[in-house]
């Protein structure tokens, strides 16, 4: 089992590394960091621009391979990802933002997985009944809604609720209220209130996708002989379904989870932008609009590491659920 997980981990690690390096090369070829200075009035001299670009290690006159090598050497020897165009280090920018994104991502993914699995199983057990049809159409509708539309619709609902109740019950702009006074508890409560809508938005999208797959997987299992055997041994229907059914139906879900995680990341980036959170998603998009190669690569590295963790985690779950892997 350890061998299996280590093998998968190395596979994911190589993939993440290649993804980051190719992101660096692609960004270097496409983005034009000099454009930012050329548009200035008065225009800085070529020497100044070159000096700035050299300092950041993004001068387009240096060959891409050479820049990539310098970037790699810096990463290995100093553990540094270079500087952003605002002359802050990418690492410090990332540490400031990562918490924001992780809070949303971890909560959203966990809620999505639990809700998705539960309603998927329920839909399969009650196949073609009204509740199954309702869940199916609801998840199709959510899957047909772009995440930014879902976020804004939630905001419209929240505004309506707030104006009906006459108090600011649900906060939804930004991550916390600026300049809030009060103790630790007040701050915690304020952040939790801001977290509400983005998490619902992300969890809804995820749960809709997971529930469709879980329903299919569960339907495959329900007709299997071993469920009948378990029933004939005298197990109750519920016990047979949970102990023998859900457990087996979760095996394909663990691989689907790893494989859909990149989509979740993109969805989280969009959600952050809609709710004006200053997280990694915003950093990535801003890096592209401001032609900031180092910041872009940093953001991609962050995503690649998350995919690496999610992939390995799902393999651990896979190995735990499927005894055949452990041999």
């Amino acid at each position: 089992m350890i061998g299996f997980i280590v093998k998968r981990f190395i596979n994911y690690a190589i993939l993440s590394a290649i993804a980051t390096l190719s992101a660096y090369v692609l960004a270097s070829l496409i983005l034009n960091p000099a454009g930012r200075y050329l548009g200035r009035n008065p225009r800085p001299s070529d020497e100044t621009i070159n000096a700035i670009l050299n300092g950041l290690g993004v001068n387009p006159h240096t060959p891409v391979v050479e820049r990539l090598w310098t970037w790699l050497v810096n990463l290995v020897t100093h553990g540094s990802l270079g500087d952003t165009i605002h002359n802050t280090s990418v690492i410090s920018e990332m540490t400031a933002r990562a918490g924001t994104s992780l809070r949303l991502l971890i909560l959203g993914t966990i809620i999505a997985a639990i809700v998705g699995v539960v309603i998927g199983v329920w839909g399969a057990v009650r196949q073609y009944k009204f509740s199954d049809q309702a869940i199916s159409y609801a998840s199709f509708t959510v899957l047909a809604t772009p995440s930014f539309v879902l976020g804004i619709l939630l905001m419209i609902v929240a505004t309506f609720v707030n104006s009906t109740l006459g108090i600011q019950l649900i906060n939804f702009t930004g991550e916390y209220t600026a300049g809030l006074d009060g103790g630790w508890w007040v701050h915690f409560w304020d952040r939790a209130a801001h977290l509400l809508l983005p998490t619902i938005s992300l969890a809804l999208m995820g749960a809709a996708g997971y529930s469709r797959y879980q329903r299919s997987a569960m339907l495959d299992v329900l007709s299997a002989d071993y469920i009948r055997t378990a029933r004939s041994k005298g197990r109750t229907r519920g016990s047979a379904l949970v102990r023998h059914g859900v457990r087996v139906a979760l095996i394909p879900m663990s691989t689907y989870f790893a494989y859909s995680f990149a989509t979740v990341l993109a969805g989280a980036a969009v959600t952050e932008l809609v709710f004006s959170w200053h997280g990694m998603g915003e950093m990535l998009v801003q890096a592209i609009t401001q032609s900031d190669i180092n910041a872009f690569t940093g953001a991609i590295l962050f995503n690649a590491i998350l995919v690496l963790i999610a992939g390995t985690l799902s393999d651990v779950v896979y190995a735990a659920l499927d005894p055949r892997v452990r041999v």
Binding site: L15, S22, A23, N32, A266, I288, F296, I300
Partner: peptide
């Protein structure tokens, strides 16, 4: 397969945004 896996690790939305200046 490596190429496909790579694109599955890099969310395509980010690549679209990166390529959008072109």
């Amino acid at each position: 397969i490596w190429f496909i896996d790579l694109l599955l690790v890099l969310p395509s939305l980010f690549l679209f945004i990166l390529l959008s200046p072109i």
